[in-house]
Write a protein that binds this DNA or RNA. Structure first.
Lengths: 188, 188
DNA sequence: CTCTATGTATACCGATCTGTTTACCTTGGA
DNA sequence: TCCAAGGTAAACAGATCGGTATACATAGAG
């Protein structure tokens, strides 16, 4: 049976390359070269490149949401404060040297059809982030947690686009200021 | 000298294909086939595919901003109302059958480096849209037109991402409701 | 020691990519 | 009528694509 560490190695390198250069622009040859693995090994773990892309997106989803949850829970202990702390997490993320936007927005751009598996997985990721926000909003005792989570999520997406397309990293602070209005409105 | 109508034909077909399938995934062979033009003709008008991509993005920018301005000015005569009408334009756009997100967000996803010409052109497009919003905010007599235009623009980007990645077309209405708060705040 | 599993390295497949070249056609103007 | 401009169709070049196959190395278990 295939060694799990090889598989992980491949996914990790694919993650970096897909995120930096895009999915279509990254060939499997580049991935195996960086992973130090033969092509046969790659195709023993993944039937096609598309399957590798899906595995990569799943790992990215797991890593990203863990990072988001850890960061916000480290910054703030009260759920209501965590709703704001999400935007501090964004600010840090935007300033990472290899920031290249949201990988799932990028994936949806390259796999435009709504029924494409990679596109669907991207939508699922966004839904899971919104679920986390909703959960925190509930814990905070917001009047309408669902509506609030959608508002905050929409602000996050806007900030990410601003930061990536226009290179304006202050968008995290702007979105944070905007978010405060919607949070406060839930607790008057 | 090359006939202008041929060039236009090529750009128009490239626009459709790039928007629908992405830039890397669309080959020049598909473009010339759809345009009914020989490869030599394409390369007499554009030195490389990248140059064609840039010309395509320039045309998209022109078409999109004209459509945005016409639609908002048709819907509302007062500048302050136009700021809200932008989100009605978004709603209509999201419901077009060939809606595939914002072509410039998609371009920035495929050409991730900030100094890539296509990425820079995408940033410029976003800046020009923000300029239009700022102009309308000024005409409306907003207290801080620059800040308001950034807020509205960020809401627009968020709504677009929501609509494309998650397929949630109601995001235009949600963003509109959110926008009202920031607009009203400028005129108390 | 030997067999088997797992891996590497590499050649190869057919398709497709961007871009060039060749040969031929059509059309308008002097 | 003839010529040049601008076009088409198609072959071609060289690289790269995703994916397969072959040959060989290595290491652990019996």
């Amino acid at each position: 049976m295939p060694s799990p560490s090889k598989r992980e190695l491949i996914v990790d390198e694919a993650l970096k390359l897909f995120y930096r250069h895009g999915f279509h622009a990254t060939g499997v040859d580049a991935i195996i070269a960086r992973a130090g693995v033969s092509k046969k090994t790659l195709y023993s773990h993944f039937r096609t490149k598309d399957e590798l892309i899906l595995a990569t997106l799943r790992k990215r989803d797991e890593l990203f949401r863990n990072k988001l949850m850890r960061a916000t829970e480290r910054r703030a202990s009260e759920p209501r404060d965590r709703l704001l702390a999400v935007f501090d997490f964004l600010a840090d993320w935007f300033h990472e040297k290899d920031f290249n936007g949201c990988m799932f927005i990028n994936a949806a751009a390259e796999f435009a059809e709504q029924d494409n598996p990679s596109h669907m997985l991207s939508a699922e990721h966004k839904r899971l982030v919104a679920d986390y926000l909703c959960e925190q909003a509930e814990l905070a005792g917001a009047r309408d947690p669902v509506a609030l989570s959608h508002e905050l999520n929409l602000l996050m997406e806007g900030a990410i686009v601003y930061a990536h397309v226009m290179g304006d990293k202050r968008s995290a602070e702007r979105a944070r200021d905007m978010a405060r209005m919607f949070i406060d409105r839930q607790f008057d």
